[in-house]
């Protein structure tokens, strides 16, 4: 009896300790997790649900996690949680074929530098939200989290070449959107 009671107590202490370490190591990246979830889902409530579920998963696999970059690890879980959440909602994302970068040269005029300089926050936000989800994901990870192509490739589970082409296509579309919006506004 005594031994088993002691074991239970030790187990609790151990778990408490796990939680403390988890809180100190993983939860500082909650903003990054929320930012990614928020951009993917484009909705406050859904983003919160996704992050909460992702953190539960993260805690579950926490013991198997060994010291790699914690933020990337959490972001990968957030991303996977979002896509499985989408599937549950039966809203399959329309993933595009990742083509060659050359294929993005659609003959659109090169945007004017001045117009891009005038892009305001709202315009940028709308332009980003308008992107396909996998392009949005690449832009958020690169431009907001400052991650390398390798890190993004690991998180998104695609080859580095695909990251490169997604970023190129995403930026091209952003430029076209912003230029069009700016031209429209100035007319």
């Amino acid at each position: 009896m005594k031994v088993s009671a002691w074991c239970v107590k030790e187990k609790r202490l151990f778990d408490q300790n796990e939680l403390t370490v988890f809180n100190e190591t993983v939860l500082p990246h909650l903003d990054a997790a929320y930012n990614l979830a928020r951009w993917l889902s484009r909705n406050d409530h859904d983003a919160e649900d996704v992050v909460q579920e992702a953190c539960l998963r993260a805690f579950k696999y926490w013991k198997g996690f060994s010291g790699r970059d914690c933020r990337s690890w959490l972001l990968a879980i957030v991303r996977n949680t979002y896509y499985s959440w989408l599937r549950k909602q039966a809203l399959q994302p329309e993933l595009t074929e990742d083509g060659e970068i050359g294929a993005i040269d659609d003959g659109a005029p090169s945007p004017e530098v001045a117009l891009l300089q005038n892009a305001d926050r709202e315009m940028l936000k709308t332009a980003l939200e308008d992107l396909r989800v996998e392009f949005r994901e690449a832009i958020v990870l690169r431009e907001m989290e400052g991650l390398s192509y390798k890190e993004i490739a690991d998180i998104s589970g695609v080859p580095i070449g695909t990251v490169m082409s997604r970023l190129a296509r995403a930026r091209k579309q952003l430029q076209i959107y912003l230029t069009t919006a700016a031209t429209g506004n100035s007319l």
């Binding site: 939680l19 929320y34 406050d44 909460q52 539960l56 805690f59 926050r121 936000k125 431009e143």
Partner: peptide
């Protein structure tokens, strides 16, 4: 320019204050 516009645009979303608490409660 695009990169710096995104950077300057302060487009990051901050986690709401209650989220951390909710996460900890859910884990427990």
């Amino acid at each position: 320019l695009l990169s710096s516009a995104v950077e300057k645009g302060a487009l990051r979303f901050q986690a709401p204050r209650h989220l951390k608490r909710n996460v900890q409660t859910a884990i427990r």
